[in-house]
């Protein structure tokens, strides 16, 4: 069973006056089949956690460990992490001019699966996955994220999630900027992947709205670069009612 273990993770970014510590000792274990919601106010370090796990060069790990089934994730390059089974659905997916969605998906699937998918079954697989996400077939011929609306970008991220079938899916504010219809479609996509029971999900969000569609097993409140409180789904209800105020005050003095 796939397990992502984060232990005492410290991460810094380069700021004007030297390195600034953003993650200050994160401990978290995500097992296959589980869904963890990470909730927190702006600037608490949620996205830094997501990008650090994926290996973005902007973030420097200064302490702690991250392992996937015992393998040292921090020692892997960005592409090695993806091939090991870590998937990050980005909050701001990047435009890649000149590269069509279809070419991108196939290249990515080839890299992740270790061999090129058979063309006939692949075309069908992509077509069906796109239909489930209510994406027009012409989408495949557009350049990656170029001129996509906010909703299209997020659907495209979830399309990749469905096709690449990672062991650990990190969804970084996938709900931000979505209207109710798009949120429902995207959430259904995430739930299809979760229902397979083969993925551990780390759902990073500022709002409780998406939790109406995607039910977490565990909820963690993130504040000042670490997990301030953990609980079950009832913790989300508390946050819905009371907001982050109690955590922000504590964080401000840190």
């Amino acid at each position: 069973m796939a397990t992502l273990e984060i232990h005492d993770l410290h991460v810094s970014v380069e700021a004007e006056n030297g390195p600034r510590e953003i993650l200050r000792g994160v401990d978290l274990t995500v097992k296959q089949g589980e869904t963890h919601a990470i909730m927190g106010p702006n600037g608490s370090g949620k996205s830094t956690l997501a990008y650090s796990l994926a290996g973005h060069p902007k973030y420097t790990v200064t302490g702690g460990t991250v392992t996937l089934d015992g393998e040292d994730v921090l020692a892997m390059s960005v592409d090695e992490r993806a091939r090991a089974g870590v998937f990050l659905a980005m909050q701001y997916p990047v435009e890649v001019p000149g590269v069509s969605v279809s070419n991108f998906l196939r290249t990515s699937a080839t890299a992740i699966r270790g061999e090129a998918p058979k063309l006939r079954t692949w075309v069908k697989e992509v077509k069906e996955a796109m239909e489930r996400l209510h994406m027009d077939p012409s989408f495949a011929e557009r350049n990656v994220n170029e001129g996509f609306s906010g909703g299209e970008k997020k659907r495209h991220e979830i399309l990749q999630l469905e096709l690449l079938k990672p062991k650990i899916a990190i969804l970084d504010e996938t709900d931000s900027g979505l209207d109710v219809d798009a949120l429902r479609i995207v959430s259904e996509g995430v739930n299809r992947v979760r229902e397979s029971g083969e993925v551990g999900t780390l759902l990073i969000t500022h709002y409780t709205r998406i939790l109406r569609y995607i039910k977490p097993d565990h909820v963690h409140v993130f504040a000042a670069g670490r997990i301030a409180e953990s609980g079950g789904p009832e913790l989300a209800d508390k946050l819905e009612a009371e907001g982050y105020e109690a955590y922000v005050k504590g964080g401000a003095s840190a």
């Binding site: 960005v78 993806a82 091939r83 990047v94 991108f104 990515s108 990656v144």
Partner: peptide, 9 residues
Amino acid sequence: FYLMARGIP
């Protein structure tokens, strides 16, 4: 980063 995060070297 985006392409590498999808497994592409």
